[in-house]
Simulated assay, not measured.
Amino acid sequence: MASWYRSIGEVITLTLHVQPGAKRSEICGLHGEALKLKLAAPPIDGRANEALLKYIAELFRVPVRQVELRQGAQSRHKVVAVTDSAIQPESLLTDQ
């Protein structure tokens, strides 16, 4: 199993390395034991965190209310939980 996510019951917990202020939001592959994402949102007033939750919700095809930032609000290293998604985390790497 990959080290960048855990799946327990209905909840998938992702370890992310986020780079805000990019030209577009995209998955960049693995960065150590985290999934690296670029976000097209500036790290100002929580806008990058808001954009991150929306982007993760799109990737996992769930409403934003089913995505929760658990750690790292002020950091590039974040932990996000996704509830009730049929999407497998490994597929994010193969869809690039």
Score class of each variant (00 low, 15 high):
residue 3 S to N: 12
residue 4 W to Q: 01
residue 5 Y to M: 03
residue 7 S to W: 10
residue 7 S to H: 14
residue 7 S to E: 13
residue 8 I to L: 13
residue 9 G to R: 13
residue 9 G to Y: 04
residue 13 T to F: 01
residue 14 L to I: 07
residue 18 V to C: 15
residue 18 V to D: 09
residue 18 V to R: 04
residue 19 Q to T: 07
residue 19 Q to F: 00
residue 20 P to F: 11
residue 21 G to M: 09
residue 24 R to F: 14
residue 24 R to C: 07
residue 24 R to Y: 14
residue 24 R to K: 13
residue 27 I to S: 08
residue 30 L to C: 14
residue 30 L to E: 15
residue 33 E to L: 12
residue 35 L to S: 01
residue 35 L to N: 04
residue 36 K to N: 08
residue 36 K to F: 05
residue 37 L to T: 01
residue 39 L to R: 11
residue 39 L to W: 01
residue 40 A to Q: 14
residue 40 A to M: 12
residue 40 A to C: 14
residue 42 P to L: 13
residue 43 P to K: 05
residue 43 P to G: 10
residue 43 P to H: 11
residue 44 I to D: 11
residue 44 I to M: 12
residue 45 D to Q: 15
residue 47 R to A: 09
residue 50 E to N: 09
residue 51 A to Y: 05
residue 54 K to I: 02
residue 54 K to T: 09
residue 56 I to N: 01
residue 57 A to N: 12
residue 58 E to H: 09
residue 58 E to V: 06
residue 58 E to D: 14
residue 59 L to K: 13
residue 59 L to H: 09
residue 60 F to S: 07
residue 60 F to A: 00
residue 60 F to M: 01
residue 61 R to S: 15
residue 61 R to Q: 15
residue 62 V to I: 09
residue 62 V to H: 00
residue 63 P to D: 07
residue 63 P to N: 03
residue 65 R to C: 11
residue 68 E to W: 02
residue 71 Q to W: 06
residue 72 G to T: 03
residue 72 G to I: 04
residue 74 Q to D: 15
residue 75 S to I: 00
residue 76 R to L: 09
residue 78 K to V: 00
residue 78 K to E: 03
residue 79 V to C: 15
residue 80 V to K: 08
residue 81 A to D: 07
residue 83 T to S: 06
residue 83 T to L: 02
residue 85 S to C: 04
residue 85 S to W: 05
residue 86 A to T: 10
residue 86 A to V: 05
residue 87 I to D: 02
residue 88 Q to K: 13
residue 88 Q to R: 13
residue 94 T to V: 10
